[in-house]
Design a protein around this nucleic acid. Structure first.
Lengths: 183, 183
DNA sequence: GATATCATGTAAGGTGTTACATGATTAG
DNA sequence: CTAATCATGTAACACCTTACATGATATC
């Protein structure tokens, strides 16, 4: 049950419409909890019904195609604060790539090296993007408590990408040895 | 679409019944792609209908409560081999904990340190379990290609746990400074 | 007035989770 | 013959994904 809380966080950072939220999910918050616009609109409806957020003063009857901004109500802020304190176990890892390598142990590794290289490139690109964000958003002089926390979250993403790059590199070395008996 | 492939891999490693698969998912394969027995039974039905696996010679009418073993057919093996070669992008990270820390940047960090310590302990326990598996399953003398690949997958899990422990430790230091002005 | 873009939404299907139901087998 | 456990399954719901639908607004 994290999507509603992701939305509450985003709306507290800045009241927004559904489409604006979608865009922000494509950038910052979505790096750790992605969501499509369909999910977001549905969830905005639920949050409004539950009295955790409300649409800002809008034209009499808000219709399809017309912008609708939301802000968080105090009940929403409380729910979010509760959530940060609640005990919630980490979910087990889900990696299709690890799984695929394990499948390759049974049916053969032919063709996997290309895919691993492709993933390595994707993770390198993601890492570069995070590092650029880090330079832009967290220059040394910004050092409020909120900044430190957001920076910590971003460093989590950075280190995760570094982990994947290291692992993929190791995997490719392993495969290389197997695929090129010349070594 | 990874669950069916996880099941095919498990069944190739050893033909099994639904319950046996469930148990093995609780141990090895499930560490990277978990599944409940309900998912597994549903998926076994689909795989059988699709002609990728079949139930081993069983009593005339296999009934509820009676064990039913499955094995992979050649079509299943081919599908699995195809899957290892297919291009499939990594899914973006989904971490409720990173998200919660980001929420805490808005609503306050009170009470989060306990939760971070709890997670640190859980990851430490998981790491210990992986390391025990590594000692048991991959002693130096085992070194076939399949063993090397499975070992690589396990090392992925190990390094991921180490990543989380390092990040949580850093996060706690950060919070500690904020929560204990004595430092 | 046609086209592109902004903005909100519906529908359908797949996947995952939780709770419950039911028969077979074994141990006391 | 009772209880525990093994084993397979159903049902309902939450969540996520993909494709499509529709109205509003700006631009040429």
């Amino acid at each position: 049950m994290s999507l509603p809380h992701a939305i509450l966080t985003a709306l507290l950072e800045k009241p927004s419409s559904g489409l604006e939220l979608t865009r922000r999910f494509d950038r910052s918050i979505g790096y750790f909890w992605s969501a499509t616009h369909q999910q977001i609109y549905r969830e905005l409806g639920k949050l409004e019904q539950a009295g955790l957020i409300r649409a800002l003063p809008a034209p009499a009857t808000p219709v399809r195609g017309q912008k609708k901004e939301y802000e968080v109500l105090s009940a929403g802020r409380e729910e979010l604060a509760d959530w940060t304190r609640r005990a919630e176990d980490p979910k087990p890892i889900r990696s299709a790539l690890l799984l695929r390598l394990r499948a390759a142990a049974v049916v053969g590794t032919e063709g996997m090296a290309d895919e691993l290289r492709r993933h390595l490139e994707l993770h390198r690109a993601q890492l570069d993007e995070y590092l650029a964000m880090e330079r832009r958003q967290f220059p040394p002089e910004r050092d409020s408590e909120a900044d430190r926390l957001r920076h910590l979250v971003l460093r989590g993403g950075i280190e995760l990408e570094r982990f994947w790059m290291a692992w993929l590199t190791e995997a490719l070395e392993g495969l290389g040895v197997l695929d090129d008996p010349d070594d």
